[in-house]
Design a protein around this nucleic acid. Sequence first.
DNA 1: CGCGACATTGAGGTATCTCAAACGGAGTGG
DNA 2: CCACTCCGTTTGAGATACCTCAATGTCGCG
Lengths: 224, 224
Amino acid sequence: MSAVQTQIQTARASYAGLMARPQTEAADLMWQMGVRMAFAKDEEIYGQDEDADLIYRVISGAVRTSRLLSDGRRQIGDFYDADDLFGIEAGPTHRYAAEAVGDCVILVLKASALRAAAGEEAFQNLLWAATNRELERTQEHLLLLGRKTACERVASFLMGLADRRPAGTVNLPMGRQDMADYLGLTIETVSRMLTQLQGALVVEFTGAREFRIANRCALARMAT
Amino acid sequence: MSAVQTQIQTARASYAGLMARPQTEAADLMWQMGVRMAFAKDEEIYGQDEDADLIYRVISGAVRTSRLLSDGRRQIGDFYDADDLFGIEAGPTHRYAAEAVGDCVILVLKASALRAAAGEEAFQNLLWAATNRELERTQEHLLLLGRKTACERVASFLMGLADRRPAGTVNLPMGRQDMADYLGLTIETVSRMLTQLQGALVVEFTGAREFRIANRCALARMAT
DNA sequence: CGCGACATTGAGGTATCTCAAACGGAGTGG
DNA sequence: CCACTCCGTTTGAGATACCTCAATGTCGCG
């Protein structure tokens, strides 16, 4: 079995499971209609200011949305995991670019096709739910960037990751630079805060990309 | 044309076109149905986590939305001017509180009443447009907080204010503390950046709450 | 005129950034 | 199986943008 097929199997299994992800008929329809595309690490899925007539859904891997300032400074808007929808815009174009954090498989389909197949109401519910989720997460992110210290930002980030997967050990799909650009920090500061959190016995890293929460209360407290 | 198509058309039109202000029939209806309420400076219009079954519209004055961290740090989400809608939430409760920046008059009405009067479709249009505007502004704000310097933040802020009112002289409805909490800075840093911008002959302050753009290109450049 | 609130300015401290070097782990070749 | 390389991460030392605390200035209003 190919790597991609395996990924697709895995994604289906996890889809059947849990929550927070769209569970409407429209979402189910996506599985039948969409095209599965593989993207290599750091490959662009769509660019900033490109037309936004497609809807995307992560099958496996992770995706980031990002925006560049003219001098190269980068802000990451959000990360998307398996089953997350992304790329849904109200305006005609994408306001952030989207790239593959690591190798990943994405389900892509035309918004108009889904609308025709799912019906207006179901389609609209999907858009509404996705947009709201986006807004809520962006508002939380805003508070983090505006008023939290480096340590609090990193703690919040780890907490956010851990909440999604209640498993004991959590995997970090992204590297330190991606974390830094999400948190409005530098790579070095992120690294220092991580070692600091380890020193405080709040989290424990088994490798650079995998950790376990040693003291959930303490982490929650540090995230404010 | 289907309901959904109409909604998307409307959203795209208002996005593409001018600005941000509701121009649908539903918005017109608000004027007839709503209750006008006066709020004094710093008075709370609604609190965080309160039920969100009302829709608000600024008639005169200005409004800010804000969120507090447990230790008193404050982040302002956005400012709303005359004719702006605010308080529209996807979820059941408000995620930010809303307060009067100065004395102001607000049009308030029940969301359910507007839906009944304007019709489902027009009502949805209004919600969709308002939510999208919110998301777009929040994303811009995010970039500002994550990756801009103090000077760039202040320049962006003044630019944003000036864009809304193309008049020669622009009024600042909010004090320095509100600006600081919007920009993720302290009051002193905001003040210093303002005098710095004045020194560079980019803007000119006639009073603490009123300025004129002396060099729009330079200001735009500094806002990145 | 004088009070009170708000804004500006100053001096010193600190969290975070920058630059640079050392470390580590995964993959490769011997 | 070990040495080697490469890339991402960590650590260190010094610089700096922004913050904090404190004093001074300014405007609006009774």
